[in-house]
């Protein structure tokens, strides 16, 4: 475990290229697979250690509030903006499709269900990843290369308790809230297009929504947000915690964190969706 503290054991070395066609290829693939497996194991241990420390006092309430502000403050504007335009596009395209079946009255529920079940959690998670997640990785990465993490260890304090646990908890609180804001703004964005541009009555837009949107849909969206919050904070903290040396190491870690978080959000979106349907 102590090896993990310094990031040494998880820095995969680039495999040497053995000479000779197929053997060389198998060697490279095997080395790559082993390296990936080692990283996955290290990530899993990192998550388990973080989850255990969530329940171990002292609880860092001040740090938690600061990190909720960090996620919320950094991402609120971009979440509102993307939510608004996502709702507007949904209404525009949805109206065009529903009109073919003479079901324009169902535009409200179509927009609401798409946002609450799918687009709200996914798009808000992707926005937060790009905005706050990348900053989080860079911040922890800089702490790694400037020995601030070593300083915490030297003080007999757990860096995971100070740097990772508050971020995981903050993400678990902030992601569902941001997703809810995204949904509400998106629904009103859809309303703008449906009512003000396409001439649908406001009553039709909202009353149909009330009829078709169940609590189960809201819970599904909430569960997705919670899952994405855990994924994004875990990946971003891990990549920063084990950032390589120098500015290049931090920049590589930040890119890797954003890419991996975004891919995992989409993969888990499908997995959760298929589990619920």
């Amino acid at each position: 475990m102590a090896e993990d503290m310094t990031g040494q054991s998880v820095q995969g070395s680039t495999p040497e290229l053995p000479k000779g066609g197929i053997i060389a290829l198998v060697g490279i693939l095997g080395s790559w697979a082993l390296n990936e497996l080692r990283t996955m194991g290290s990530m899993f241990i990192f998550l388990m250690r973080s989850l255990v420390l969530i329940f171990r006092p002292p609880f860092k309430i001040r740090l938690l509030i600061r990190q909720i502000m960090f996620f919320g403050n950094r991402s609120l504007l971009i979440v509102i903006l993307t939510g608004l335009f996502a709702g507007m596009v949904l209404a525009l395209q949805g109206y065009y499709t529903l009109m073919k079946f003479g079901s324009e009255a169902l535009l409200g529920p179509a927009v609401a269900l798409s946002l609450i079940r799918e687009l709200g959690p996914v798009l808000s998670a992707l926005m937060v990843t790009g905005r706050a997640g990348s900053a989080l990785t860079a911040e922890i990465g800089i702490m790694r290369i400037s020995e601030q993490i070593d300083a915490l260890l030297a003080m007999a304090l757990s860096p995971i308790k100070y740097l990772v646990v508050p971020n995981i908890l903050a993400a678990l609180i902030a992601f569902p809230l941001l997703s809810a804001i995204f949904d509400v703004v998106g629904i009103y964005g859809g309303w703008l297009i449906a009512v003000k541009l396409l001439g649908l009555s406001s009553g039709t837009y909202f009353s149909q929504m009330e009829q078709f949107v169940d609590m189960a849909d809201v819970i599904m969206g909430l569960e997705k947000s919670l899952c994405f919050g855990l994924l994004v904070s875990w990946v971003c903290c891990y990549k920063g915690y084990y950032a390589g040396f120098g500015a290049k190491g931090v920049s590589k870690a930040t890119t890797a964190a954003v890419v991996l978080s975004s891919v995992l959000v989409l993969v888990f979106d499908y997995l959760i969706g298929s589990f619920w349907l």
């Binding site: 475990m1 102590a2 503290m5 070593d150 300083a151 260890l153 030297a154 003080m155 007999a156 304090l157 757990s158 860096p159 995971i160 308790k161």
Partner: peptide, 13 residues
């Protein structure tokens, strides 16, 4: 061996 270690309380770095 773990990241929190009381023995380190004896140190200043």
């Amino acid at each position: 061996k773990d990241d929190v270690c009381s023995l380190r309380e004896r140190f200043g770095v």
